[in-house]
């Protein structure tokens, strides 16, 4: 599987574009279709492509585990933070009087957190699966 030259070449070309597309989907999640979950899944699929590139095949799982735990805590904190600023749980932190261009950043940060969390979780899952399958 890893010996085919053409697949390795195409995977090398495709990998940065998949990363770029995933990041685009995450960051523009609040103005165009997509969002944190979808972009995170695409980033995880980009990691799947690197299984064809032998130099990049080895990663440490612990980083992804740590990132997932910390980002889940961050999500919970972002949800709870709106209790002190707005007065309701699990809504936008910034108050409704601010202009839309500023309130939008809360959604961008939330999308980023969800996207990185989902991509690290899925990467962890199938890296462990591939290791187990060998």
């Amino acid at each position: 599987m890893k010996d085919s030259d053409s697949i390795r070449c195409i995977a090398r070309i495709l990998y940065p574009f998949m990363l770029l597309f995933g990041c685009y989907i995450i960051i523009f999640g609040d103005v165009s279709p997509g969002g944190g979950f979808q972009g995170g899944v695409i980033l995880a699929t980009a990691r799947l492509v690197t299984l064809y590139i032998p130099e990049k095949a080895d990663i440490d799982v612990e980083i992804f585990n740590l990132a997932e735990k910390l980002l889940f805590l961050l999500l919970l904190l972002l949800g709870l933070l709106s209790l002190f600023t707005v007065g309701g749980l699990f809504t936008n932190v910034l108050s409704a009087e601010l202009p839309h261009e500023i309130r939008r950043w809360f959604l961008v940060i939330l999308n980023l957190a969800i996207g990185i969390k989902v991509s690290s979780g899925l990467t962890l899952i199938f890296t462990q699966f591939v290791k187990e399958g060998e």
Binding site: Q38, V41, I42
Partner: peptide, 22 residues
Amino acid sequence: YDVALAEIAIGSAILPLIFIIA
């Protein structure tokens, strides 16, 4: 469009990999 994006990435890349390894 949102559901289509999630479906195309999960259903055609990640789930088959997991199934084939299993």
